[in-house]
């Protein structure tokens, strides 16, 4: 048996974080610039509101959503903030690279910031699944990998569909995320919400047992029932809605679109799983100094406690 103390990340965390920030600053120096065309104040402030709502959801929403563990509140909130700050900077670069391969400077508009924040949110969802079992270095790597995968996926979607059907399965979370533009009356949305709620509760009640026992997956923040299942539901609903339209119009173009869409949906799931597995294997390496299983879900492993007492 090794030391009873949690392993120290003093060697790698400061080194990685500082090196990463330096690399980000250099990349920003070479590849980014202010947006050339500035909208007038009204449009600017409108875009700013949208961007800010997403930031509030990411920082405050995700931070405190995951703070339910009795001895893991500090880590949940503070790691979320860290992952958000890192994810957004990295996502700006990834998105810029994928959209025009740095042939020109990436123009930072408020809407590109908003999209980057949404990419970072995909990381926050995944962080919920490994909550309490990974240290900050591992989460950092996960954020880098996942934002890259997410950006790639969105790029593929944009190339294939050229519409905004992207982020529901991985990031949308809410079942209504995908088909929002196809729902014509509120009652459809309400039915969808009802189903999503049932699935979510049902999933949270029954699935963990099977996931845990059979697949050996432990999902701390039950992200599968909060984001995974409703996301899938959203994707499938969209398919059904599209089919509904196909029947009525007999349009071969729509059939084609339907096929493509099914492909995109499966691609999103497959890509999430594959990149997740890859990242997982990478993070399982010993060099990241993951906490001992005995120290899982414990802030004490990561934080300095000024006046340490038994039970806090």
């Amino acid at each position: 048996m090794g030391s009873k103390y949690p392993r120290s990340v003093r060697g790698c965390l400061p080194l990685f974080a500082l090196a990463l920030e330096t690399a980000l600053i250099l990349s920003f120096f070479f590849f980014t610039s202010y947006s050339g065309s500035i909208p007038d104040q009204r449009d600017l402030l409108e875009a700013y509101r949208g961007f800010q709502d997403v930031t509030v959801m990411a920082a405050l929403g995700f931070g405190f959503l995951n703070s339910s563990l009795r001895r893991h509140g500090w880590s949940s909130v503070a790691f979320t903030l860290f992952l958000l700050a890192l994810g957004v900077q990295w996502a700006i670069l990834v998105d810029g690279f994928l959209s025009h391969f740095f042939r020109e400077h990436v123009a930072l508009t408020l809407s590109s910031l908003q999209i980057a924040t949404m990419s970072a949110m995909s990381t926050l969802i995944s962080a919920g699944a490994v909550l309490g079992k990974a240290n900050l270095v591992q989460l950092m790597l996960m954020a880098l990998m996942e934002v890259t995968a997410f950006g790639t996926l969105r790029m593929v979607n944009n190339l294939v569909l050229a519409t905004h059907i992207h982020n529901a399965v991985l990031a949308g979370g809410v079942a209504v995320g995908i088909p929002g533009h196809m729902i014509l009356s509120p009652w459809v949305a309400m039915v969808l919400g009802l189903l999503a709620g049932l699935f979510s509760i049902g999933g949270a009640k029954c699935l963990p047992v099977c996931l845990n026992r059979v697949l050996g997956i432990h999902d701390t923040g039950s992200v599968h029932s909060t984001f995974g299942l409703p996301g899938l539901l959203g994707g499938i609903t969209n398919l059904i809605l599209m089919m509904h339209w196909v029947d009525w119009t007999k349009n071969s173009m729509l059939t084609y679109q339907l096929l493509i869409y099914t492909g995109v949906l499966s691609l999103a799931v497959a890509m999430g799983l594959v990149s997740g597995l890859l990242t997982g294997w990478l993070l399982a390496l010993k060099i990241w100094k993951a906490p001992h299983a005995a120290k899982y879900f414990d802030d004490q492993a990561f934080w300095k406690f000024p006046h340490l007492t038994v039970g806090y």
């Binding site: 990340v9 003093r10 965390l13 400061p14 080194l15 990685f16 974080a17 500082l18 990463l20 920030e21 980000l24 600053i25 503070a78 903030l81 860290f82 700050a85 890192l86 957004v88 900077q89 900050l136």
Partner: peptide
């Protein structure tokens, strides 16, 4: 965003 990364690093 930058100050978040560096402050975590230095704190650690």
């Amino acid at each position: 965003a930058a100050s978040v990364l560096t402050s975590y690093a230095l704190s650690s």
